[in-house]
Structures are given as structure tokens and as C-alpha cells.
Simulated assay, not measured.
Amino acid sequence: MPIDESVNLRVTHSNLKNFSADVHFSLQMTVESAKDKLWKKCGTSVDSMSLELYDDAGAKVHELKDNLRPLGFYSPQDGYQLHIIDLDPSSVTSGGWLEDTSLVEKFSISEEAFDKLDGTFRKFKEKLASKNPSILEKKIPDNYMEDFCSNIKVGDRCEVEPGGKRGVVKFVGRAENIAPGFWVGIQYDEPLGKHNGIVKGKCYFDCPPLHGALLRPDKVKVGDFPECDPFEEDEI
């Protein structure tokens, strides 16, 4: 029984500039079968697909024109590039919209039509205000929780509750693009945060990714909180 030899090729596409995939092929499969396998990966139909083979130096070595030939006839080697050319101008891959979402038509609705919808947050607020108008009139003052910051300064070791997460204070002050009042920026000792100190496009402090948190000061306790020993829990 003959051995089913195979090859790994790097597949690229004429219309999909960001598409690149390493695909495993049997050398015994026909060119048409290879095209069918690629159609399921990139969306170009078999009838609209032309294939070109490039060596590892980027030089074209073959055009795979005969669909009935086995792939091995064209002597591909591991690491060669198999380039798909989509010949259909109306193909789903044409125009770049599969990669550039700015080209996709966005759903929009007029203010008049939106006002007629039920179950929206706008309708919820209107209903809430009709029952208790004072709820929407309450605003957070600019000095909210300022008193909690009196003993917190940048560089302090701290512990955050709930959860007992430890870290160092990196920011104390207002963050108007989030909400009025005072905030404390923490760099956690471990990747237990949500960001790298940049929140809603504004940099409040600098720290490694997933180590940053911005919290109200009432959740931050400063003091002698050394970094936790990662092996401590394993000790008996």
C-alpha cells in the first residue's frame, strides 16, 4: 500500500491581504480537491480559483492549471507558498469588506423611530423619572470621596477590598471622563486588573497589561502590605 505523502504550504490570497494560513495537503490529492479544501477556508469558489506555487525564496515555480493532476506533480515542498487568485470580480472576497469593517454598512435608526420603540433604556429612564423625578436630579459632586484620599498617596502599598488584592498606588485624583469625584489608580502585583492604566482613551498611569485598576478610594486601604509570596499557599 503506497505511503500517503504530504506537505505543509503557506496559503495566501489575492483579495485578502491579511490572510495567511499554514495548510496540510496530501500530495496524492488532485488540484481540484486542494481547491475544494481551500474554498472552505477562504470563500473563493473552486471554479473561480487559480493557484500559483512559489518557493521559499518567493520565486514562482508553477501555475497549477490542470485540476486533474495530483498536487505532487508540481513538486511542492514544505514551506512553499500556495497563492490563491480569485478570478470572480463579484466574489465575496472582493472589495476588501471582509477585512475592513468600515466598508460594511452600519445599522442606523432615526430619533423619531427610536422614540417609538419599547424596552429601550431611554424609555426606562422616562418611566423612572415620571415615578420619582428627584432620582435623575441627583448628581455626583466633583469632590465626591475626596476625604477618603487624605491618607492615600502615590507610591503607597495597598490592599483592595473585596478580594484582598495587593498592589501599589499609582494615581490619586479626578477622572472626569469616567465619573465625577475622586479615584485611585492601582497597579496590582499580579495580573488581576482590567487594563494598563489607560481608561477610555486617557492614560492615568503606566503599568503592565491587566495589572491596572481605577477604584473609588473607599475600597483602598494603604499600609504595610508586602507582595504575596506566590509559593506561600503551597507550604504546609
Results as ranks from 00 to 15, higher is better:
149 C>A: 04
179 A>L: 12
181 G>K: 00
116 K>H: 07
103 L>C: 07
118 D>I: 06
147 D>G: 14
125 K>V: 11
114 F>W: 12
102 S>R: 11
158 C>K: 00
138 K>W: 10
203 C>V: 15
189 D>N: 11
199 V>H: 05
132 N>P: 01
182 F>N: 07
159 E>A: 14
212 G>S: 02
204 Y>P: 05
152 I>D: 09
191 P>N: 03
129 A>L: 12
110 S>Y: 03
136 L>V: 05
114 F>A: 14
175 A>L: 06
200 K>N: 08
169 V>H: 01
122 R>A: 10
106 K>E: 15
197 G>T: 08
155 G>A: 05
166 R>F: 02
166 R>N: 07
216 R>M: 09
160 V>Y: 03
145 M>G: 05
127 K>F: 05
187 Q>H: 03
141 P>T: 06
162 P>L: 12
109 I>H: 02
175 A>P: 08
135 I>D: 01
164 G>F: 08
120 T>D: 05
197 G>H: 04
193 G>R: 02
149 C>F: 08
154 V>F: 01
192 L>V: 12
196 N>T: 01
214 L>G: 04
115 D>F: 04
173 G>S: 09
104 V>I: 11
181 G>Q: 00
123 K>Q: 10
161 E>Y: 13
162 P>V: 10
169 V>G: 00
206 D>R: 15
196 N>V: 04
208 P>S: 06
145 M>F: 13
164 G>S: 11
203 C>N: 13
162 P>W: 13
144 Y>M: 08
208 P>T: 08
116 K>V: 04
152 I>L: 11
113 A>I: 06
174 R>H: 09
180 P>N: 13
131 K>M: 15
129 A>H: 15
119 G>K: 05
133 P>N: 12
123 K>E: 03
153 K>H: 13
130 S>M: 09
212 G>N: 01
176 E>T: 01
202 K>I: 15
160 V>L: 04
196 N>L: 00
113 A>F: 03
213 A>Q: 07
215 L>D: 13
111 E>L: 11
169 V>N: 00
151 N>A: 11
182 F>Q: 06
160 V>H: 05
131 K>T: 11
162 P>G: 13
134 S>R: 15
133 P>K: 07
152 I>T: 10
199 V>G: 02
194 K>T: 10
205 F>M: 04
106 K>W: 03
215 L>K: 14
170 K>L: 00
147 D>E: 15
164 G>I: 12
177 N>C: 05
146 E>P: 08
116 K>L: 08
107 F>A: 14
139 K>S: 12
129 A>D: 15
190 E>Q: 10
133 P>R: 07
127 K>W: 10
179 A>P: 13
202 K>C: 06
211 H>V: 10
103 L>Y: 01
170 K>P: 04
138 K>E: 10
134 S>H: 15
152 I>F: 12
140 I>H: 03
179 A>T: 11
177 N>I: 09
144 Y>F: 15
130 S>H: 09
216 R>L: 14
169 V>C: 01
189 D>R: 00
110 S>M: 07
112 E>A: 12
146 E>H: 14
107 F>S: 12
